[in-house]
Design a protein around this nucleic acid. Structure first.
Lengths: 243, 243
DNA sequence: TAAAACCGAGCGAGCGCTCGCTCCCGGAGC
DNA sequence: GCTCCGGGAGCGAGCGCTCGCTCGGTTTTA
């Protein structure tokens, strides 16, 4: 997955959507009574999209299954042949997003300098959250209501991204590209900058700021701090100071 | 309100708590059937604290009034002589926090340089959110479920803090202390750094990072970006380069 | 024409809220 | 000093309603 321009990124993700849905269908086949994959995949997409839409306005618990039935145009009975409980709907929605995230965030090890890798990670995260905004918002806002196991999972993936960034910062320190006193804490501070993009979307839309503008501002903001006083803060010209 | 040390800040706020509760009681007297102020204030404090605790785990809508009754030890009937509906409880909780915030965030105009004023604002915000963590968390997470009027209010106060910061950045630009290309967008990026402190508290507690450590790291992070390439980036030694 | 998909009235549980009642306490009457 | 009593505070079973979910019957598909 490249992260060059947002348009290209977006198209690549959308091209993968159908196969993601098929994977979710197969993973949860034991709790779906509908047999035909083609029918199920189409309906699941509608159900997930609608459920995310309602949940993000009212909250998942406040969304009644009747609401979902009316909004999708699928009767109560039919709905319950795609899910076997409201909780399993949550489960499916979460694994749908997790599949997508896991697929899109595979960092290519071809990326050279720490600075470039940091850029790659932050850009991929922001672009992905732009494409799958409803899912990211949902996942952030509903985590605290999950059962223990789902909550563990969500916390795990939160920390996983942070470790990715922290490792990158430590690597940059060693190469002399960065000068970060506490990589863990710095990574923890970078995370909310990524998350604000999907949490306060109304604010940025209101100000006509698009994802590429936001991304480049965040990169400037972060880099101003991490390269401050580094051995070499022009790492792009001298990618390796140490062997 | 000074913002020197957290301990002192915390004590000042706590000393004000009782009079804040009395103000809330008087403001909402028409929907509280209990007459005696002393009784009401004591009970309201218990009710608010418990309601915030349950809501922050389950969500306000998912908190049943029976849950609240059991957790406080106040019977259903008695509870409904302190509130006249679940919605009015929300109303009271919100004005309780708004009173406290409005009181604590009055910026003293004695503060000199833009850099010092920026520090004051960020520090006051972080310290206040530390003292009133449950309220800030609640207010952030529940905003989207509010009725139109409450939501407007919440969005307004979100933007108010941002304007405070943006004004400060513009002022710093004029004085040559800062070099910020887009003060509005930068202020928008600073906000989530303040909010992460009360939104992801578990993360920082787990890593033994206290509010003063967090505050100073955020200040470093922000200042590295805003003073980058300023006319005078050592404004503390030379507070005024321009007349 | 059998299988697959769809339908929606109906179930018990739990919701926000009410109301008829009891408990408790301070001061008036003797 | 004791009795009595009015009203503020507290109580919890029960109301009308909506929730998640089911099931027997109907329509569509291949």
């Amino acid at each position: 997955m490249s992260a060059a321009g947002f348009r290209q990124f977006s198209e690549e993700v959308n091209a993968w959507q159908p196969s993601l849905l098929r994977e979710v269908f197969q993973q949860h086949q034991h709790q779906i009574r509908v047999k035909k994959e083609a029918v199920a995949v189409e309906r699941l997409e509608l159900i997930f999209r609608t459920a995310l839409d309602i949940s993000n306005r009212q909250g998942f618990r406040a969304m009644s299954v009747r609401d979902l039935s009316e909004a999708t145009g699928i009767s109560m009975g039919a709905l319950y042949s795609y899910i076997d409980s409201k909780e399993s709907l949550l489960d499916m929605i979460l694994s749908y997003g997790a599949c997508a995230a896991g697929w899109a965030m595979r960092v290519p090890d071809s990326v050279g300098s720490a600075r470039e890798r940091l850029r790659w990670i932050l850009r991929a995260h922001l672009y992905l959250s732009e494409v799958m905004l409803p899912w990211f918002f949902f996942s952030y806002m509903e985590t605290r209501h999950f059962s223990r196991q789902f909550r563990r999972q969500a916390i795990g993936s939160e920390l996983w991204t942070e470790h990715l960034v922290a490792d990158c910062l430590r690597d940059g320190n060693e190469r002399g590209e960065f000068n970060v006193e506490d990589p863990e804490l710095t990574a923890a501070l970078i995370k909310p900058l990524l998350q604000d993009w999907y949490l306060k979307r109304w604010k940025y839309r209101q100000r006509d700021i698009d994802v590429e503008r936001y991304t480049s501002t965040v990169l400037d903001f972060v880099e101003a701090y991490v390269v401050r006083g580094a051995v070499s803060d022009a790492s792009q010209q001298h990618p390796k100071e140490k062997p």
